[in-house]
Design a protein around this nucleic acid. Structure first.
Length: 593
RNA sequence: GGGGGUGUAGCUCAGUUGGUUAGAGCGAUCGCCUGUCACGCGAUAGGUCGCGGGUUCGAGUCCCGUCACUCCCGCCA
C-alpha cells in the first residue's frame, strides 16, 4: 500500500462509505467552529472535505495549521446528511472523519492567497509561480496545454509523421529576428545561436529522406515581448513534408486544427474548410494579414471619389492629389447611433496617432444625402457612386481615413477592430480560421528603400520558374501561407525552394552574392545540391493555440514558468551575473558601464 | 528606443479642493463558537504612501526626476 494515500482528493463517494482511507494534499481552506473544524484538502485532482472535532487529540494542532501546508490524513469516509451535501464538489456527498494526521510539508505565511479568484500583480505571481500554479484556473490551463500537446503528438503520429529533435545550440543566421547567442568555450570568440525555429534542420530532414517530420519545437527569438508574445522562447508544432504542394499541407493542418479545436473547446468553428484569402485582398478588405473574420466590417478604397468635381472635401482632395489614399469602413444600420458614438471613434483614432476619422451617415429624404460633419461636401451623384462601390444602403454610415497608403491601411485595420467592438458585432463564441496565401516574395524596406525578403527566404516563388520576372521582384509571389484564427496569427509556412540555383538568384536580389549565401547557409545550400525533394511545411504556434482554447489574452496564463516583460525570470533570478572564472573560461570580458 | 497606465498594510483596494492620529476587506496573531463549504463574532499587531528632490505653514494628494511592473508602437524571416 502507498504510504501517502489510498485515494486522491476527487475520488471518494458514497461507495467508499465506512472505509478507512488515507489522503494527502494541501490545506485549501479551514472553517473553524471552535469545537468542530472543517478542512478542505486539495490535490491535483480535486477537493475533499475532512472533519475533526475537539474529542480528537490532534484537534488543537489542526486548528493552528497554516493554509497550504501539505498533510497526510487518515480517517473514515462518512456519508453527509442530506442538508449538508455540497453539490458543487465531486466528493460533496461524503466527508472524511479525521483520526490521525501528519504534516508532510510546512507552509510559512503566504505572500499571496492561493484559494481566491482575486487577480494579483504579475510580479508576485511570477516570483511565487509555484503558488500561483496551485490556483485553479492556471492549473487547469497548464493541464490543458499538456493535453493539447499530447493530442497533437498522437494525431501527427497517426498521420505517419515522425518526431525528431533538432539541435538547440546551432549557428546564427542573418535575416529574421535577433538571435540569442551562447559563447563557445572550445572555440574562443565564436558563438552558437539558439534556433529561432528549426527551419533549416527540418528541410535537411527532408533532404535526408524522412518524408514527414514534426516536433514540438522550442524557438528562441530575442525580441521585445507583447501580451501574446513571450520574450525569448515559445513553442511551435513544427512540421515538414516531402513531395507535397500547398494544398497537401493545408489538408493535414486543417484536419488537425479542426479536430483539436472541436475536442478542446465548446466554441463553434465558423468554417471547417478554412477560406483562402490572398494577401493583397486581405490587406485591402481588412487592412491586415491577420484578419478577425468574426468581424463583418469591411474596408473599401474610395480614393477616386476624391478626384471628382462634385466632391468638395478639400483637405482629402489635396492629399489625394499628392498621392494619398482614402479608405472607408462601412457600418450597417447605424443612423440612429448617437453623435457620441461617432465622435468617440474619431477621438480614439486621434489617440492612435491618426489625424482622425471623418464620417457621415447616408440618409434619404427626397434625395440621398449625407449627414454628419463632412456630409455637406458630397453631391448626391458622388454619394450614389460611393454606395455602389461599398454596397452601402440608406441608414448605413462610413468612416473615412486619408493618408499615405501604409498609414491608412494601418488605421483602418485598427478602426475595423475598434468599431467592431464598440458595435458589439464580434461573436466571441466562435472560432474563425482562414489561410492567408500568395504572400509577396519580396518587399521594399520603407527606411532603406532596399528590397528584402518579406517572409521566409527559403520559400518557393510561384509561377513558371523559367519565366520569373526578376526585374520586378516585388511582383513575385511565393508559396507562402499563414493560418489566422480570430485575428491571431497562428502559424506561417511555405513550400520551400529546393533548387540551389534559384536560391542564389533570389538572394542576389536582396544583395547577397553566391559566396555570402554559401557562407551563411552552408549546411542547407550544400544539402540542396545533393538531390533534394520538393518539400514544404508549416509551424503552428502551440502557445497561441492554447491561448485561444483557454480563452486567455496573455501568453503567461498558458505558460508554466514565464519570464516577465523585461525577459527576467523572477523566480529563478535569470538572467544573472556569472563569475569572473566563468567569463575567463569563455574568453569573454565585460565592458565597464 | 518611444508613448500610455499602475505603484498606499503580507494580498486586493479606498483615500474628496493640499489640512488633525492614512482607512476597509482578505490574510496573520489571540479569544468565542459542533454542520460549515467565501462559516460567523470580538480583539490585536501590521505603513519608508515605490525612491529622490522641489513648491508650501503643511504633500499620499501639486511639480520635476528616477525606478519597478504592465499595455501598446518600433522590433518579431
Amino acid at each position: 500500500m502507498n504510504k501517502y494515500r489510498t485515494h486522491n482528493c476527487s475520488e471518494l463517494s458514497k461507495t467508499n462509505k465506512d472505509q478507512s482511507v488515507v489522503l494527502s494534499g494541501w490545506i485549501n481552506k479551514k472553517r473553524d467552529h471552535g469545537n468542530l473544524l472543517f478542512i478542505d484538502l486539495r490535490d491535483n485532482y480535486g477537493l475533499t472535505q475532512c472533519v475533526v472535532d475537539k474529542s480528537n487529540k490532534y484537534f488543537k494542532e489542526l486548528e493552528k495549521i497554516q493554509l497550504e501546508s501539505v498533510v497526510k490524513i487518515t480517517g473514515k469516509v462518512v456519508e453527509r446528511s442530506k442538508d449538508t451535501i455540497n453539490s458543487e464538489l465531486k466528493t460533496g456527498e461524503v466527508e472524511v472523519n479525521i483520526n490521525e494526521f501528519e504534516i508532510l510539508g510546512h507552509c510559512r505565511e503566504l505572500p499571496m492567497p492561493v484559494f481566491s479568484d482575486q487577480e494579483y500583480a504579475e510580479e508576485i505571481r511570477l516570483k511565487y509561480r509555484f503558488l500561483d500554479l496551485r490556483r485553479k484556473k492556471i492549473h487547469q490551463n497548464i493541464i490543458l496545454r499538456s493535453q493539447v500537446i499530447s493530442f497533437i503528438r498522437n494525431e501527427m503520429t497517426k498521420l505517419g509523421f515522425l518526431e525528431f529533435q533538432t539541435p538547440i545550440l546551432t549557428s546564427s543566421s542573418p535575416e529574421g529576428a535577433r538571435d540569442f547567442l551562447v559563447p563557445s568555450r572550445l572555440n574562443p570568440g565564436k558563438f552558437y545561436a539558439l534556433p529561432q525555429a528549426p527551419q533549416q534542420f527540418k528541410q535537411l530532414i527532408m533532404v535526408s529522406g524522412f518524408d514527414k517530420y514534426f516536433q514540438i519545437a522550442p524557438c528562441f527569438r530575442d525580441e521585445d515581448a507583447r501580451a501574446d508574445r513571450s520574450p525569448g522562447e515559445f513553442y511551435q508544432l513544427d512540421l515538414e513534408m516531402s513531395f507535397v504542394e500547398q494544398e497537401d499541407v493545408f489538408k493535414v493542418v486543417e484536419k488537425l486544427l479542426v479536430n483539436l479545436f472541436k475536442k478542446f473547446s465548446s466554441k463553434k468553428l465558423l468554417q471547417e474548410k478554412f477560406p483562402r484569402i490572398p494577401y493583397d485582398e486581405a490587406m485591402m478588405k481588412y487592412g491586415t494579414d491577420k484578419p478577425d473574420l468574426r468581424n463583418p466590417l469591411l474596408i473599401y478604397d474610395l480614393t477616386n471619389i476624391f478626384t471628382r468635381e462634385d466632391v468638395k472635401f478639400e483637405i482629402f482632395k489635396k492629399l489625394v492629389k499628392s498621392g494619398s489614399k482614402v479608405r472607408c469602413i462601412l457600418t450597417k444600420k447605424t443612423k440612429d447611433k448617437p453623435r457620441s458614438f461617432f465622435d468617440n471613434i474619431d477621438k480614439w483614432a486621434k489617440e492612435q496617432g491618426a489625424s482622425g476619422l471623418a464620417y457621415f451617415t447616408i440618409e434619404k429624404d427626397k434625395n440621398i444625402s449625407a449627414k454628419g460633419p463632412v456630409g455637406k461636401f458630397f453631391s448626391e451623384e458622388a454619394l450614389k457612386e460611393i454606395m455602389k462601390i461599398t454596397s452601402a444602403e440608406v441608414g448605413d454610415s462610413m468612416f473615412f481615413a486619408c493618408g499615405k497608403i501604409n498609414e491608412v491601411v494601418k488605421i483602418c485595420a485598427l478602426a475595423r477592430e475598434k468599431i467592431g467592438q464598440d458595435l458589439d458585432i464580434i461573436d466571441k463564441d466562435k472560432f474563425s480560421f482562414c489561410w492567408i496565401v500568395d504572400y509577396p516574395m519580396f518587399e521594399k524596406n520603407s527606411e532603406t528603400n532596399k528590397i528584402q525578403f518579406s517572409h521566409n527566404p527559403f520559400s518557393m516563388p510561384q509561377g513558371d520558374l523559367n519565366k520569373l520576372d526578376f526585374k520586378n521582384p516585388l511582383s513575385i509571389k511565393a508559396y507562402q501561407y499563414d493560418i489566422v484564427c480570430n485575428g491571431v496569427e497562428l502559424s506561417s509556412g511555405a513550400i520551400r525552394n529546393h533548387i540551389p540555383e534559384l536560391m542564389y538568384k533570389l538572394f542576389s536580389l536582396v544583395g547577397y552574392d553566391k559566396n555570402q549565401v554559401e557562407e551563411k547557409f552552408s549546411g542547407m545550400i550544400n544539402a540542396l545540391s545533393y538531390g533534394a525533394p520538393p518539400h514544404g511545411g508549416i509551424a503552428p504556434g502551440i502557445d497561441r493555440i492554447v491561448m485561444l482554447l483557454a480563452n486567455e489574452k496573455n501568453i503567461r496564463e498558458v505558460t508554466m514558468f514565464p519570464m516577465n516583460q523585461n525577459a527576467q525570470d523572477l523566480m529563478m533570478d535569470a538572467p544573472s551575473e556569472v563569475s569572473a572564472d566563468q567569463l575567463k573560461e569563455l574568453n569573454l570580458s565585460l565592458k565597464k558601464k
